[in-house]
Simulated assay, not measured.
Amino acid sequence: MSKVVVVGSINMDLVAVAPRFPAPGETISGERFVTVPGGKGANQAVAASRLGASVSMVGKVGRDGFGDQLLAVLQHEGVDTRHVGRADGASGVALITVSGGENSIVVVPGANHALLPADIAAAEAELASADVILTQLEIPLATVAALLDIAARHRVPVILNPAPAQPLPAELLAQCALITPNEHELATVLGRPGEGMDSLLPLLPGKVVMTHGKNGAWHVRADGSLYHQPGFAVQAVDSTGAGDTFNGALAAFLPQGLEVAMRHAAAAGALAVTRLGAQAGMPQRSELQAFMAS
């Protein structure tokens, strides 16, 4: 298995389960409330670690109670936190409403926006030792750019999960080994809103693994041929964290080849939606192997 360094966000998720989503200005009664460690970076780190990768995290938490809890959880999951710093103020939080297997999310970045290029430079030796680097867009774009420069210098492949999506310059995309958007995110990243996968995927041959929920994932190979990894049929309970599970699994299994990694990632993402919570729903390696064997 690979050594994965995850550079990204670390949040506390405040999750309310409700019979439906409230309309603007409306108050409804919820059915359940849980506080769950999250953040795309931390989620992907936990997913990769549970699946057997050696994982280090580069990020920031606040000097608050949430920060203490978030560090403790990462360490409990076997993630190396030597490069997780403490920033003045609050840790990042995500306010999540779950209903009918779908979710709506408001993210307040907090300490995540204090992860700066200087922090990436301080972790250069760790980054240089990685087999795969995994990052997202819940940290400043300048920090992602600094990360890509260091990774290129050491010839370490970077998987960018471009969420929350924003238009990205061509030179930044060129430095990524892979990007892992959904269809909407891919259109946003490329500055072509409203276009679908048929026109978007050929624009970055060999670079994109596009996820599509229960329908699986697509990849246009460098030679222009299309590869589709079908989804796995499960009963969805909560889709929170499914994409992060996919990304963590993709990084963990990438040394076995991209298409093998996509199959494992699709299966891991499917397992994740059968349970409540982002990190809580992520499968262990043994669970993934049993699911795929069945």
Rank of each mutant, 00 (worst) to 15 (best):
G65Y: 03
Y227Q: 14
L173D: 14
G89A: 02
A268R: 10
R285M: 09
D64E: 03
P205T: 15
V73C: 14
V156L: 13
Q229D: 01
M197F: 10
V156P: 15
L134T: 10
R263Y: 00
L172C: 05
A47P: 00
L160F: 06
P140E: 10
P37W: 09
M282E: 13
A272C: 15
K40C: 05
D119N: 10
V237P: 03
P109C: 09
H113W: 10
V61A: 00
T143V: 09
H264A: 07
T274N: 12
Q175T: 06
I150P: 01
V15S: 01
G101T: 00
G67I: 12
P230H: 02
V79G: 06
H212S: 11
P109L: 06
V93I: 14
T81Q: 02
L168V: 12
R192H: 12
G67M: 07
G30P: 05
A233K: 12
E138G: 11
H184N: 02
L71Q: 13
A122V: 08
N247D: 14
V79M: 08
L288K: 02
P169A: 15
K40E: 05
A251G: 12
A123G: 11
E138L: 05
L148F: 06
G224D: 12
G243D: 02
G65M: 05
M210Y: 01
A111G: 13
I150W: 00
A236T: 15
A128C: 10
L254K: 04
A72N: 11
E287F: 07
L200V: 13
A290G: 07
Q289H: 09
S294G: 04
E31F: 00
G241H: 04
R263K: 14
E124C: 06
D88L: 03
E124I: 03
E259Y: 02
R155C: 08
V61L: 00
T245E: 01
V34R: 07
G248W: 11
V58E: 07
A170F: 11
Q229A: 15
S91R: 06
Q136H: 00
H212N: 09
V98H: 08
A270V: 07
T81G: 03
L226H: 06
Q69E: 14
H154M: 03
G41A: 13
P230I: 05
V55N: 08
A53C: 06
G191F: 11
W218F: 11
G241K: 05
S104Y: 01
P37E: 04
D68M: 05
R32Y: 02
S2L: 11
P157H: 04
S54A: 15
Q284P: 00
G277E: 02
G277R: 06
P167D: 15
V5D: 07
H76S: 13
T27L: 09
G194K: 13
H264G: 04
